[in-house]
Computed example of a mutant assay.
Amino acid sequence: MTDVLAKFVAYTGKRLPDDVRAKIAELAAQEDAPLAKSIYETMEKNQELAMKLNRPSCQDTGAAQFLLKCGSNFPYMAEMEGILHAAVVQATAEAPLRHNAVETFDEFNTGKNVGKQIPSIFWEIVPERDDIEIHMYMAGGGCTLPGQAMVLMRPIGSHNPNPCAAQMERPLEDGTMRGCRDHKALHCVFPAGCAVVAATCVEEIVDANWLDLGMPETLWTCKVKEFGPLIVSIDSHGRNIFEENKVIFNERKEKACAEICKQVGFIK
Rank of each mutant, 00 (worst) to 15 (best):
M168H: 01
F108Y: 15
A6I: 06
C164Y: 11
E169S: 15
F249E: 13
C188E: 09
E203H: 05
F105Y: 13
P96T: 07
T221M: 11
C257T: 02
K262P: 00
F74V: 01
D106C: 04
W123N: 04
S38W: 01
E259M: 07
A198H: 06
T110I: 03
A258P: 00
E48L: 10
F242D: 05
G140E: 06
I83N: 08
R239M: 07
E259Q: 10
P161D: 08
V202D: 04
P56Y: 10
V89K: 15
K45V: 00
C70E: 03
V126W: 02
A258R: 11
L97F: 13
L68P: 00
E254W: 00
E173C: 07
D235P: 02
A95F: 09
V206M: 08
P191N: 06
L16E: 09
L16T: 03
F108R: 01
T104Q: 12
R178D: 13
L53S: 08
G228K: 02
E254R: 04
G157P: 02
I156K: 07
Q59E: 15
R129W: 00
T104A: 15
P229N: 05
R178A: 13
F190P: 03
K116E: 13
E41G: 15
S158Q: 05
D106F: 09
A199V: 00
